[in-house]
Design a protein around this nucleic acid. Sequence first.
DNA 1: GGATCCATGTAACGGGTTACATGATTCG
DNA 2: CGAATCATGTAACCCGTTACATGGATCC
Lengths: 197, 197
Amino acid sequence: MGAGSGEPKLPPTAYAVLGMLSFGREMSGYDLQKATESSVRFFWSPAKSQIYAELRRLQEAGYATEREVAQTDRPDKRLYAVTPAGRTAVERWLAESPVELETIRSTFLLKVFFAHLMAPGVVEKQMAEYREQMGSLLETFLEIERHILAADNPTPYPYMTLKFGIGYARSAIDWCDRTMKELPTGRERGRKKGGKR
Amino acid sequence: MGAGSGEPKLPPTAYAVLGMLSFGREMSGYDLQKATESSVRFFWSPAKSQIYAELRRLQEAGYATEREVAQTDRPDKRLYAVTPAGRTAVERWLAESPVELETIRSTFLLKVFFAHLMAPGVVEKQMAEYREQMGSLLETFLEIERHILAADNPTPYPYMTLKFGIGYARSAIDWCDRTMKELPTGRERGRKKGGKR
DNA sequence: GGATCCATGTAACGGGTTACATGATTCG
DNA sequence: CGAATCATGTAACCCGTTACATGGATCC
């Protein structure tokens, strides 16, 4: 039954899945994929294949039950639910895993860092694109916020993470706007500083 | 000589290393480790073993030259330098790789999302810890900024990424402060809303 | 009736992590 | 004179990604 070797050490994604199951609904891999995409995706975003892998492991560890459901007009599916042991495991992880600042992993910032190797105008263009993407991310967040505020059950903790996202997007957009002003435009490139024609 | 099969597709870390070499200095794996730790670490942070692996690959691809240097009082080392082909490769990557918003990958936010499963007081404690860590990160950033502003050669693009980091840290700290006010403290837990003692 | 989307998964690869290994130098 | 740190790297593992596979329902 998978027990017997102490608590297995699991990757964060396993706890993300377990946490999702801990809201009480029985869910399939597909459900979990959708659920993460529409909620924690901004700060945690496993591939679906990873979700399936974690589900299998959680079941083997005794942290989740698996139940096969036959369907006629669709592929059969497996529904998972958290067990008491699984519940304990998430709680332990939540309580005991250390708080630490992880790296942002932004290839965009990496590119800005090396932007002296770019042809004139390219950083500007890419930053504009980045700004736009951040803009629609912010829109999405604000839309979700409206739904949350309109709903009866506020789910405060998820809402907190949303507000983090809103703050993040706003600060990134501010940064873009301020930075783009500083960037030398094509015309001014190569002029000596202070030489106002 | 590693050429001949078109441009190989390389992971971002390869370009991070190549970009570092493109500042012109000959560097060892150790040097690169130190250099990334003290600059791009906030948004890109390869393990040193990964750096060594990428260096080998860059050399095989003809993007970097390798030169073994014997040392008496220390282990021998290999110094790498970017080749013209390597220079072209970074430039292509910088120009052509798409701009996209990657996920933040924050286990801390993941934990906040599931905080309803935590015992009373635990989120508060962890958020305080997070805030503190963000605080010292901001300190570090501001310290670096002072150095940059005092220096003669401003390296504008790296400075821009630093300012992104400063904005990020500030917004995260703001979020902590605002959120911690909203969090029910131990005493108030379980009270009906609106009951002002 | 062809294309796209919904819904379910599996398989293989590799980037990146953790752990290991070594020896000089400096510090208490 | 033992411990910690500097400085160099190697080896193995596994998480997570990309690509593949299947078939009904729905849209144009």
